[in-house]
Design a protein around this nucleic acid. Structure first.
Lengths: 334, 334
DNA sequence: TTGAAAGCGCTACCAC
DNA sequence: GTGGTAGCGCTTTCAA
């Protein structure tokens, strides 16, 4: 159990702790004789020395650890953002501490992780309202970068270009000949929901289809929400539907099946975001991939640069990935 | 940024650091005058004092933090085990540090988390072979509890009763009149796979159905595996299938759809484990719920007790939860 | 090129 | 009941 200390190494190598520290830390100005250096390294290796991070952190006031707070773990979007953040962090010498904030939970998670777990900075994703998030963030004791949303006043955030993604999805649909396209929107008032709705309208406009607000229903980010919203939109006799997420697309598909409508013969369905679960639905869902892993990567990189004292420029929204055509979309049949 | 130290509080309250430490820590033998006590508490509150966990940990050699390492995050099984562990840990005054071990990753995760992230103990879930896991664990610098599997030599582990779960699923199928039941098995050689196969055989035996190894195919834990295994078993003309997991069930359903077989009219499908995704499949999947959250809870509790110096008895497998009847299973039609 | 020494902020032991 | 004080293991001046 991490028994061997720096003092042990120093003693065994016949040098002072400070010298051992210098070489073991790979200090820039290596004012150490090569011979001594080698000896210390050798001894440290033999003894399997590992610095005690607590002692080091106490002394340096840094932990080389980033925290990431997500609203839920079993969500491909956040899972892959975590992966990206972890990779980037590791590459830059940081480790990542994952934390999740349960839906009903009070605003303590951010405070807790930034206080009890000693992180140098925080990556935060949240589904909360602006006000709630702002309050949470106020208790952050460290610099942070927001993921997947913006918040007035929070300078550093990395978001996906949901508008372009929705546009891309609608383009696919219109190219297939669809014109009665309904939209299952995200959480009312949310940043991404707004963007996606705008992209939906962009796509409609590009195909010279008039926008009709009766063809939009709020589905939120649950399967039930998607099912309900789809049910409400059935009266519009849509030939295609753009769902804001995979999950709401799944809900919508359940409603369509129940209504005896065939996918894609009667109604095409497309979702935003891609993940393995898209292929597990029936029929496999066509979707626009989103660079969620890159989002995590970029966010971590940004944060680490900010931690290093730089003042990085805000990054533009990350453009959507490929359109993954599976079997839930097809040409408009006469 | 956690600027205010114990010394600040002590000074402001006009007492010695050691006294302040005693009351702030809520030490058992509170040999402190009530008046002094109140004053210290008041000052600490005003100053918003928060102990520096690095300093405390360095001194006490404990961090009151548990690590949990899972093979994947976006898997409902592990996500809910994490939730359970977190709840139990929080209740017992510990916080939880989540880490995941990417599939291809070398055996460093356990070593890393137990060394660089100061944890008092580890909760570990793994899909690796015994040998690999054993090697990994050898580098653990702290006590650990295994989740969802056993490993000869590792005394503390908490598993689900997969055998009983599979039996329960088969009972449902046989009660519906099915007799040609195939099994999509888990990873060959795996603990859970073995248990589930045994439960499958138990269920068959109870219904006086002869076991036929041609009716079992290894699907592993992916949708593709499930699809492939299902395809291989189609020649058995099954009327029902027991999939080892939700994901392999989803794969199997895709194969059945492709083959033009209706679910459940032609073939009933049941999976083990329940999660929201089960309801998103088409048709919604009948499954046997498993107490994965409890698994996390129990594992964390066990670990904390072990950390406290107790030698807790091994816990028996956790019995399966309810049979959730959705629409993928139905009576055998003539 | 190397060593000595002063803490980082806290706890725990011992003295008063 | 309360205060002094010695470190936990490390980094980082500053001297030598």
């Amino acid at each position: 159990m991490a028994r061997v200390t720096l003092a042990d190494v120093a003693r065994a190598a016949g040098v002072d702790m400070s010298t051992a520290s210098r070489v073991l830390r790979g200090e820039a100005t290596q004012r150490v004789r090569e011979e001594t250096r080698a000896r210390i390294l050798k001894v440290a290796g033999e003894l399997q020395y590992l610095a005690n991070p607590l002692a080091r952190g106490l002394r340096t006031q840094r932990t080389d650890t980033l925290g990431i707070v997500v609203p839920q773990l079993d969500n491909p979007v956040f899972a892959s953002a975590i992966r990206g953040a972890e990779l980037a962090a590791a590459r830059l010498g940081y480790s990542l501490l994952i934390s999740h904030r349960e839906p009903g939970e009070t605003a303590t998670t951010i405070a807790k992780i930034s206080q009890t777990n000693r992180v140098d900075g925080l990556l935060v994703a949240s589904l909360d309202d602006d006000e709630v998030l702002r309050t949470d963030l106020a208790s952050a004791e460290v610099p942070f970068v927001l993921m997947n949303r913006i918040l007035p006043g929070a300078r550093l955030s990395v978001v996906l270009d949901s508008r372009a993604a929705a546009r891309k999805a609608v383009d696919h649909l219109t190219a297939l000949g669809h014109r009665r396209i309904v939209h299952l929107a995200g959480r009312a008032g949310g940043f991404n929901a707004r963007e996606r709705l705008q992209g939906y309208r962009d796509g409609l406009a590009a195909a010279k289809i008039a926008y009709d607000e009766d063809r939009v229903a709020v589905a939120g980010y649950t399967a039930e929400g998607g099912a309900l919203a789809m049910r409400a939109l059935l009266s519009q006799k849509p030939t295609a539907v753009l769902a804001a997420t995979l999950v709401s697309a799944a809900g919508a598909m359940a409603t369509l099946h129940e209504a005896g409508l065939r996918i894609p013969e009667d109604v095409s369905v497309i979702g935003l975001h891609d993940a393995p679960v898209a292929a597990m639905l029936y029929p496999p869902l066509t979707s626009v991939a989103m660079p969620t892993e890159e989002m995590g990567r970029v966010a971590a990189t940004l944060l680490i640069r900010a931690l290093a004292g730089e003042t990085p420029d805000p990054v533009p929204p990350l453009p959507p990935g490929d359109l993954i055509v599976r079997r839930s979309t097809g040409p408009l049949l006469p």
